[in-house]
Amino acid sequence: MSIWAGREDPEPDSLRWHQVMTPLKRGASTGIALLGFACDAGVARNQGRIGAAEGPRAIRRALAPLAWHRTAPVFDAGDVNCHGNDDLEAAQQRLAERVATLLAASHLPLILGGGHEVAFGSWSGLARHLKAQGEARPRVGIINLDAHFDLRDPGRTASSGTPFAQIAAECHARGWPFRYACLGVSRASNTRALFARARELGVLVREDREFTAQHLDAIVRDLQRFMAHCDHLYLTVDLDVLPAAEAPGVSAPAARGVSLALLEPLLEAVRDSGKLRLADIAELNPGFDIDTRTARAAARLIHQLTLDS
């Protein structure tokens, strides 16, 4: 909790995140629960730039001084740590257990990554919770703001490039519908095989080059139609969806990307849907960040996502 510190203003009603953050304890009232996933084993397996395991701490540090505009409480639930590349699958299961526990207590889990392998652990936790609630065939909408589909065949080795293929396989095995929207995709960074796989799975795809001020309202409407056919929403943001100038501290910086200003309306639509059950932020690599731009962008996204609608 020592990271939650900063300036305190004398004016009334001038709280910041660091002043309202408390450690999560059993029996706490319902609120947002931050949970770190200190892992970059999936990035290493994907031959990316490692260092995302330090992401949760950097995001907390960037969040601490931001102004607080909520009424419900916020808690820090600590970290799930991954101890080396061979511990990835076990770490994802530990994350799933923690997420399911938070959901059972009616919190909104907000997971701080970590590589995008966080997604399989996050979704698995939501799936555990829904099964425990007795939902036989829930329609879980996955909304991924990302330059990459992350639909590569895991084969024998899962990585940060495979989580949504793993989730699709799990949905098939459970008899659940697989509803996936990937927004901000870079055609230059995804093979024809991945685009074909996305078409086969019925993925809602919007490429980075489609994101302009002129077309933004249409993309938001597409997202709203997608959400209308879902019972629950899981939002995941890979920070490499942002342009490299806004997010240099990621495993794979984007040559083009989608600006923060164009992403925020999507977050607001998800937030205001009333269906958001779980969210995570992935791929912050502080070792490659410049002037903490990427960490600040992550904090801004969290701030916007958690504003009272």
Rank of each mutant, 00 (worst) to 15 (best):
residue 259 S to Y: 08
residue 129 H to S: 12
residue 17 W to F: 13
residue 40 D to S: 09
residue 307 L to N: 07
residue 117 E to R: 03
residue 112 L to R: 08
residue 260 L to P: 03
residue 188 A to T: 02
residue 216 L to S: 05
residue 277 R to H: 10
residue 45 R to H: 13
residue 117 E to M: 05
residue 242 L to T: 06
residue 148 H to W: 06
residue 7 R to C: 09
residue 201 L to N: 06
residue 183 L to E: 05
residue 134 G to N: 07
residue 278 L to Q: 03
residue 120 F to H: 11
residue 75 F to H: 05
residue 76 D to F: 03
residue 201 L to T: 01
residue 4 W to V: 04
residue 286 P to I: 10
residue 234 Y to C: 10
residue 99 V to R: 01
residue 16 R to D: 10
residue 202 G to M: 03
residue 248 P to Q: 13
residue 105 A to F: 01
residue 108 L to E: 05
residue 32 I to D: 09
residue 153 D to I: 11
residue 154 P to S: 10
residue 119 A to V: 03
residue 243 P to A: 12
residue 159 S to N: 07
residue 128 R to I: 04
residue 26 R to W: 01
residue 179 R to C: 09
residue 125 G to W: 02
residue 195 F to Q: 02
residue 136 A to C: 00
residue 288 F to T: 05
residue 273 S to K: 05
residue 60 R to Y: 07
residue 101 T to H: 07
residue 309 S to F: 13
residue 66 L to D: 14
residue 17 W to Y: 15
residue 176 W to P: 02
residue 202 G to P: 04
residue 141 G to T: 03
residue 288 F to P: 00
residue 257 G to I: 06
residue 87 D to W: 01
residue 102 L to C: 04
residue 239 L to W: 08
residue 20 V to R: 15
residue 129 H to N: 09
residue 191 T to N: 02
residue 60 R to T: 04
residue 199 R to V: 01
residue 64 A to R: 05
residue 31 G to D: 12
residue 105 A to P: 03
residue 178 F to A: 10
residue 66 L to A: 14
residue 223 L to A: 09
residue 163 P to D: 06
residue 271 R to S: 15
residue 229 H to D: 15
residue 43 V to H: 03
residue 133 Q to D: 00
residue 33 A to L: 02
residue 279 A to L: 02
residue 119 A to L: 01
residue 284 L to V: 04
residue 234 Y to Q: 11
residue 111 I to Q: 00
residue 263 L to Q: 14
residue 160 S to A: 11
residue 140 V to W: 07
residue 171 C to W: 06
residue 144 N to A: 00
residue 123 W to S: 00
residue 245 A to L: 13
residue 228 A to I: 00
residue 263 L to H: 11
residue 12 P to A: 10
residue 200 E to Q: 15
residue 26 R to T: 14
residue 248 P to Y: 06
residue 189 S to N: 15
residue 16 R to H: 10
residue 88 L to Q: 08
residue 150 D to C: 11
residue 215 H to V: 00
residue 263 L to K: 06
residue 183 L to T: 06
residue 295 A to H: 10
residue 75 F to V: 03
residue 82 C to K: 00
residue 251 S to P: 02
residue 125 G to L: 01
residue 66 L to C: 15
residue 229 H to N: 14
residue 72 A to T: 12
residue 14 S to P: 02
residue 219 I to F: 10
residue 48 G to D: 05
residue 106 S to E: 15
residue 199 R to F: 03
residue 20 V to K: 14
residue 79 D to F: 00
residue 218 A to D: 14
residue 265 P to T: 06
residue 254 A to L: 02
residue 173 A to K: 08
residue 200 E to R: 14
residue 165 A to H: 11
residue 43 V to D: 04
residue 309 S to P: 15
residue 127 A to V: 14
residue 40 D to C: 09
residue 50 I to A: 13
residue 264 E to T: 14
residue 229 H to E: 14
residue 288 F to G: 09
residue 233 L to W: 03
residue 153 D to Y: 14
residue 42 G to Q: 08
residue 39 C to R: 05
residue 95 L to A: 02
residue 142 I to S: 01
residue 265 P to K: 11
residue 252 A to Q: 02
residue 69 H to D: 15
residue 136 A to Y: 00
residue 50 I to G: 04
residue 229 H to F: 05
residue 280 D to C: 01
residue 200 E to V: 03
residue 127 A to I: 08
residue 267 L to C: 10
residue 270 V to I: 14
residue 212 T to R: 12
residue 93 Q to C: 07
residue 212 T to F: 12
residue 89 E to T: 14
